[in-house]
Design a binder for these strands. Structure first.
Lengths: 229, 229
DNA sequence: TTAATATCCAACAAAATTGTTAGATTATTT
DNA sequence: AAATAATCTAACAATTTTGTTGGATATTAA
């Protein structure tokens, strides 16, 4: 007699293996479609607000399919959260982790690239902030991950900050404060967009113009923060 | 024959009226207790994540009571959201709406008072941002409300900014950009605390010391942003 | 002291949501 | 062609969550 659950696991396993054999085709398959729909739903509504039926519907499959591939809402969600955490960390690293440039250039560049990343992924920050906050069980793992990534980058930048300050080029500052300044300025307007939009006046009609101005404002603010006075 | 729903409405009506007659007693009654428990639950988990049973349990009443007083989760939630929106708007107004001071003092003061308010209400911002975002139906009303409040204050501050710039005391700047700088710096660390905590290093052990330093950093950053260079 | 009000209790009803199953069909691989 | 895998259908089961009801009991106001 067959245990259905084991059968499903077996099917998925073989599927994965054969897929691994010929990764050549793009394979816009249903599993992928479901993942994309889930991404939308989870980013917009969070774990608690998301509905597996809506996800299945948006993906154009029956909701049996969703459980066939991912077994539970929780597992599906974790696929998404994991990927998004990776993406978010990555964006900070690649934006600021470019040594070789003079410090001011490196920072200006970092701010702009980080800002551009968020323009391209405007509801990523809210998603991460909310879900990290509301998952005490997964928190310790995330914490460790964030710390490890941040530590290397921060140590590096702190050294450069100290060197520049020693040469009298910039004000002395703690890298954690500086990075928090940058991230706050870059991220907050996106997290809180619906709340700030009403106060933007004529800015709000042209969203992309506003963001361009905002990017410049953030660079300006940080450069002034560093300037020797 | 009595329609139960109308009876309940009637009871609530008379309760409200008699209460209005003698507002002298503190009345730590169950209705209030439920509201307080609901506040906790909604602030922590949002509308979708909140459970009316948890609220009732936390308030130490049966969940029939909750429906007796508030009929639906939605109505209970709106009481809370409404109050919190008011509180949040109010905090900005009272922090920055103090004319008569020289501009720099007024802003420094505003930043500090606004920051203190958030220290005292650390999960208010995340709550508002999330729930405003996920309620398209109520959004138009909130939008109007935010705009009306902001407009007066902003016009006032913009005039002072222009005057100071004309006197050559400060850099010329758009009030919307400046206020967004301030709010971003003040609010973001609280919204994202679980995410940034791992990168704080030894700061993170003493949360209140960190916040004190952070407040000073925000004032410094904004003052430098305004400084004529 | 009545009448009105606040609260409890305990069970139930209704709805929404997640998860399961048994087969059928279609496509792909061997 | 046979086996394997992907997907559909359509119903159903389990659980969670919200909301209801009819009384009982205690407290407070007229």
């Amino acid at each position: 007699m067959l245990d259905i659950k084991n059968t499903v696991v077996y099917l998925q396993l073989t599927k994965l293996l054969t897929k691994h054999d010929n990764m050549t085709k793009p394979a816009k398959n249903k599993e992928q479609t479901i993942l994309e729909a889930a991404e939308q739903e989870f980013l917009n509504k969070g774990f608690a607000g998301a509905r597996t039926t809506s996800i299945a519907e948006a993906a154009g499959v029956t909701h049996a399919m969703l459980h066939y591939y991912f077994r539970t809402k929780e597992q599906l969600f974790e696929r998404i959260l994991d990927e998004k955490m990776r993406l978010m960390s990555q964006s900070v690293l690649t934006a600021f982790g470019e040594p070789g440039l003079p410090l001011a250039e490196r920072l200006r560049n970092g701010i702009e690239r980080h800002f551009d990343f968020i323009v391209a992924n405007p509801d990523l920050p809210r998603f991460i902030v909310n879900e990290v906050f509301s998952r005490p069980d997964h928190y310790e793992a995330m914490r460790t991950r964030i710390r490890e990534i941040a530590e290397v980058l921060m140590r590096d930048i702190q050294q450069e900050l100290d060197a520049a300050a020693a040469r009298g080029e910039t004000e002395r500052i703690d890298v954690r404060m500086l990075m928090l300044d940058i991230i706050s300025l870059n991220v907050f307007p996106f997290i809180a967009y619906p709340v700030i939009e009403p106060i933007l006046g004529n800015f709000s009609t042209d969203r992309s113009r506003f963001f361009a101005l905002r990017k410049a404002e953030n660079v300006e603010t940080i450069m002034r923060r560093l300037k020797k006075s």
